[in-house]
Design a protein around this nucleic acid. Structure first.
Length: 271
DNA sequence: AGCTCACCCTGCGAGC
DNA sequence: TGCTCGCAGGGTGAGC
């Protein structure tokens, strides 16, 4: 599933084909996503003109003259603009039909994704209102990370993956950023010095930027809005590389379980 | 409030 | 070949 780089790559690839298009028709084949798609979703979106394709954290925002469709890709979702003649396959849950005979197709085998309609300002939607600043935002800096980690005894990796504290970083890039910053993922958040917070923020920002540059990571099935796979997975230093040599110090990369999630790290150079 | 854990769901690869 | 098990990019909410 998509972390911020995959969502941002999807957003960029959809911008040109979608902006200026009008929605002529909406087909929902399965409403059972993380939350059921509201009964009025099709009615709200049909006839709307798309003004912009935005993003907040891992949510895509299809902004129209009538309101905003907020789409989360969950673990296995994709949103692809396909020709209208493209056959529907299993797990193609929603089609947003456009006035150029293209279709914006939402596909999500695991159905951990979600689709909401927002009438007013997206920023005030409950799912977005309490999110942390974007990693690219000036408010997200070493001072911020240092402040929010005081008094928190959880492992720093958990902080990176908590959307209320840091947005856009999921399981792959949490491991990658901690390795880049040479910080042990198990470190209690509150024990990080200000200097290490500076280093970690820089690593998060750089890792996400590099991944966006690579078009995201395609581990199983991720594709962007044009159906293209990313290739960051070939650049990863630790993720998915248990037993292989750490590119920085040569020690064997280890696999550890934090909560229910896998963490890859190097005991040789991450302290 | 912070932390841990279970859970939502399908598919796939490993091991027997 | 066919089974069971464990794991997969995320996020919420219950219960301590």
């Amino acid at each position: 599933m998509p972390e911020l780089p995959e969502v941002e790559t999807t957003r960029r690839s959809l911008e040109a084909p979608l902006v200026g298009r009008r929605v002529t028709h909406v087909v929902v084949r399965d409403r059972r996503l993380r939350w059921p798609i509201e009964p009025d979703f099709e009615r709200h979106l049909t006839g709307a003109s798309i003004r912009a394709v935005g993003r907040r954290a891992k949510y895509l925002l299809v902004v129209t003259d009538r309101g905003t469709a907020m789409i989360h890709l969950g673990m296995s979702g994709s949103l692809v603009r396909v020709p209208g003649t493209t056959p529907v396959v299993k797990h193609d849950h929603v089609d947003i039909v456009l006035d150029d005979d293209g279709v914006l197709r939402f596909h999500d085998p695991r159905r951990f994704g979600s689709i909401h309609w927002i009438d007013g300002d997206p920023a005030s939607h409950p799912l977005l209102a309490s999110l942390a600043p974007e990693p690219s935002d000036a408010a997200f800096g070493g001072a911020y990370l240092h402040r929010i980690t005081r008094g928190r005894s959880v492992a720093i990796k958990h902080v990176l993956m908590n959307g209320q504290l840091v947005t856009g970083v999921g399981n792959i890039y949490a491991s990658e950023a901690l390795h880049a910053a040479a910080i042990d993922p198990k470190t209690a958040a509150k024990r990080l010095s200000r200097e290490r917070c500076d280093r970690l923020v820089a690593a998060v920002t750089a890792t996400l930027a590099r991944a966006i540059e690579a078009g995201g990571s395609s581990l199983r099935d991720y594709v962007d809005g044009a159906g293209n796979a990313g290739h960051f997975q070939t650049e990863s230093a630790v993720y998915g590389r248990e037993g292989l040599a750490c590119p920085r110090c040569g020690n064997a990369i280890r696999l550890l379980r934090q909560g229910q999630r896998a963490t890859y790290w190097c005991a040789g150079c991450q302290t």
